[in-house]
Nucleic acid binder design. Structure first.
Lengths: 359, 359
DNA sequence: TTGTAGGCGTTATCAA
DNA sequence: TTGATAACGCCTACAA
């Protein structure tokens, strides 16, 4: 009792019980789901005692007993990607509403960090896992699946790995992009993507692009994928070559995600190529897209909905853990925001070169 | 053994002990810090058994017994703010390196959410708390402090609340901004800030601005603060009025943070005001700043260092919990990146209107 | 409506 | 070098 408080001291249920002069069961009931069953008096006594002592139930002890940690884990490949953050925001909101807390782990696209984080999440006995991570499923991830933890894959599926998937309707996104470019008079399209091996959504987009190009005699197509961390220097050449080849026509660049859009915008700026004369359309909406030149046309993903759907999918499996249920796929439609970057200057199009919208 | 696995099943230390034919104490030692004390044989037996059963120590039980959750909490006012995310990234890295995990809570600038999250963090018995949140310290926050949990305030101090603080050297930031503007030939500065009541760093910046203006006879100054969520519509008028008043001179706008920069950039675009003719300088570096017009000049905060310093501060107090130690303040210097937005077009300045840097 | 007793998975203390 | 046993703080029967 004469401790010097070596670390933070937390009141326990027993201390509250003593302070209130009741049994710890009653205190437990008060803070659990059975507050109703206690008499007015008792409730008041406990409330007062708890307040006096600054008592907070210990979630560790709770989880230990009931086996329910009330924790959802989320694996994010790159926390600095605004898209990931936006989805994460939706995930967190949904978790809160359902009484769960979210434990977010950023892997920085590093498999080693991913494994570490998965071990960590396992040690906290998370009840569900939202994954937005790279390439091959690790041993640790398979362990989660095997052992019955509900999983949801965000934006990308994992090869040879069954789980619910929530994300964009990639085929439709590509279709909308191509249709828009074509409608605006562009007839030669360069599709740029990050390495497709790392994410199925990239693969799906690329595949659809090639498929469409094969079926549209009026359009020319070309696709490249490159690693933005190490191969950015290749980009100027790729673009220059494309423009040279397409000099007789109306060229446009389609960016597979927000990172690509950012990088391409830098290259075009360096080369003093005005947006619009070369069309530019990016998948993923970014807050600054309307600020660059005449504005960059984008396809926005409904990030909030995607995040919420992921949690819903998780909870559904949590409530009825019948493993039989086949994996579900939920795909959302993108929203097109036309801006000046897909408005050809030599046409009499009606598009306002400076869009007036606000973030 | 013939269970239908109603929920995820996790092997326990006892199961591993049985499987290996040893006592659970030994297994505990193996996974704790005393693996050395075990014989080679024993280590091998346990490793094999654990692997066979897919055993992971239960962090809940661990935390319960030892009182150490290995968890650091972080309160973020707005997770969608790139600055916050960048700092958070540094915090997380540092935590990992020190064997702690990070529990991030986004408050969306909502005091109610902040209280909820603080209760949550308390219930998980976090050992330290990094705070980047609004205005007045809540009762919950004071509870943390009173009860001895180490706290670090990020970017903003809280009124009437003692704790370590890590952030930008705000006075110097303002000085650097004003010096740069003045050197570039601007002589009338409009300072725009989000509401200062919510964050001490805003207050410090504003105060220094006014102080400098009072002491520089060659400069005209004017400051406004406004709530970007509800008062954005006031901004065009403020800027128009400023430009009208400053029509005879060389006007510049200084933005108190990244959000303000974004909003101001939109307004200037809407009003077709070219950057440079009106100077624009923003505190906080953003990935798109070099893309807008001739590029927006910024003062970057060393986000990673700030995040790491916060954790270091925490751990220091965790290791020697002598409450006597007075609060420490760590301030970092910003880095100026000059771009076209602070290059007056009518001068013979050498500044390249389009900066060539990459993100 | 309230209280008692046992156990959740782990570590710490003691003994062998 | 190992093992038995008692906590840690809470919840959930069961009993009163």
């Amino acid at each position: 009792m004469s401790e010097s408080i070596p670390a933070a001291h937390h009141a326990t249920i027993l201390e509250v019980a003593k302070e209130a002069g009741v049994s710890k069961t009653s205190v437990s009931r008060y803070f659990g789901d059975e507050r109703e069953r206690l008499s007015r008096q008792m409730q008041a006594r406990i409330a007062a005692a708890a307040k006096r002592l600054g008592y907070r139930p210990n979630q560790m002890a709770r989880g230990l007993k009931g086996g329910r940690s009330q924790l959802i884990g989320m694996l994010v490949a790159d926390i600095r990607n605004p898209f990931s953050v936006a989805v994460m925001h939706g995930v967190e909101q949904a978790c809160r509403e359902k009484g769960y807390s979210l434990l977010v782990c950023n892997t920085d696209n590093d498999p080693a960090q991913e494994r570490d984080h998965l071990n960590l999440l396992a040690s906290y006995r998370i009840e569900g896992l939202v994954i937005n991570a790279a390439g091959q499923p690790s041993r640790e991830l398979r362990a989660f699946a095997r052992q019955g933890t509900p999983l949801v894959l965000l934006d990308r599926l994992l090869s040879d790995f069954e789980a619910d998937v929530v994300g964009l309707d990639n085929a439709q996104a590509i279709d909308m992009a191509i249709d828009h470019l074509q409608h605006q008079g562009y007839d030669d399209v360069l599709y740029l993507s990050e390495p497709v091996a790392q994410a199925s959504s990239r693969q799906a987009r690329l595949q659809r692009f090639q498929q469409r190009m094969a079926n549209e005699p009026a359009l020319n197509g070309e696709a490249h994928s490159l690693d933005l961390d190490n191969e950015t220097q290749r980009l100027p050449d790729i673009i220059t070559a494309f423009l040279a080849r397409a000099s007789h026509s109306a060229p446009a660049i389609l960016c597979g995600n927000g990172n690509v859009t950012l990088t391409v915008a830098h290259v075009l700026q360096d080369q003093r190529i005005p947006l619009g004369s070369v069309g530019l359309l990016g998948i993923d909406e970014l807050e600054w897209c309307s600020l660059v030149g005449p504005g960059i046309t984008t396809l926005a993903q409904p990030t909030d909905a995607i995040g919420r759907a992921a949690v819903q999918s998780l909870l559904q499996r949590l409530e009825k853990p019948q493993r039989q249920t086949p994996p579900r796929r939920t795909h959302y439609q993108p929203r097109l925001t036309p801006r000046g970057s897909t408005c050809r200057p030599d046409t009499t199009n009606q598009c306002d070169p400076v869009s007036q919208e606000r973030p």
